[in-house]
Design a protein around this nucleic acid. Sequence first.
DNA 1: TTGACCATGTAACCAGTTACATGATTTG
DNA 2: CAAATCATGTAACTGGTTACATGGTCAA
Lengths: 185, 185
Amino acid sequence: MSDQRVENMSLKHAVLALLQAEEGSGYDLSKRFKSGLGYFWSASHQQIYQQLKKMLAEQLIDVREMPQVGKPDKKVYQITALGEEVLRQWIESPCKASKVNDAFLVKLYAGDCVDNQVLLAKIVEQQEYHRKLLATFELLERQYLDLDPAQRSSYKLPYMTLRKGILGEQAWLAWSKEALALLTD
Amino acid sequence: MSDQRVENMSLKHAVLALLQAEEGSGYDLSKRFKSGLGYFWSASHQQIYQQLKKMLAEQLIDVREMPQVGKPDKKVYQITALGEEVLRQWIESPCKASKVNDAFLVKLYAGDCVDNQVLLAKIVEQQEYHRKLLATFELLERQYLDLDPAQRSSYKLPYMTLRKGILGEQAWLAWSKEALALLTD
DNA sequence: TTGACCATGTAACCAGTTACATGATTTG
DNA sequence: CAAATCATGTAACTGGTTACATGGTCAA
């Protein structure tokens, strides 16, 4: 009577991915989600703290308490051998289709019940956001390209995901120009 | 002491968007999610049936029971004036940042704990998926372009979202070629 | 002195997934 | 004869969001 749980949802795995690269506190992980992984896997700090508690119980991670002076104490988490094994197996398992929930496109889709000006303004507003994001990505890319070849090779995979971000944002901006042209005829 | 609920999550609004275009049963909506809107807003049939029940209670929609012969009876839902108003206000309200959860990219990001071959195979497998999706989109585009100008204008906004799909998938495929090259050096 | 950053969490609620449940008709 | 399509739902669970809660340091 084995407890064959399917175990497929993956904030857990995203956290393992981060801890595999480097140990860190909940707060650290939260920042790393915001700056890197978060562009394709989002997580709030509340979610992260809860998740770490669960993962500790499952022995996927260990914790070390770090007293600090002038700052609140930290709990620094490390991935365990079991955690690494679980991560590896998850990576090798089939990918679930990625879920997209893009409210902006739903609004456009149903946009004939509002004024055209409203839609134009929305697109322009989103362009602003995507331009900034692309600029951020391009900055990160320049930093990567300035590394010497040895260091570059150790960041090759994260760099690949960064390139995904760059091409994706460029495509978004190219689309938005088309969209504005279509709307203004 | 007003009950100022923020009311921002939007399966509800996606359903209103579909019903605004045309009335339909839960089953119909489910299919329409799968074929069109679903590319940027996903919903299971269970979710849809529950949502319709709530929206009926909130008087955003009405229902008409349709007995059928040789098929199970249908409940056909229509958007109400209140529903239209709620949809309009939602469209005009600020967009929440769209949430992405892409397990494939998390796997790549953390991929140095598995064999390179595994990653190559994953990319090729995903390419397959994205090629098919692009082909589907291109078919829909051809259908749109074959319409006469009058009809085209009434599908202009959905067509814009289709173009988003096409440019997005093309970018994905372009990226994947880069990624394969990077991985095999 | 205001706001950002550091650092941790709990609780209530809402949204989404998985599993279960039924049953007729049509197509290969 | 099996599988897909039509058509509706419930129940239990898991994942995610919002709101609340605390409190010190540092820079403008």
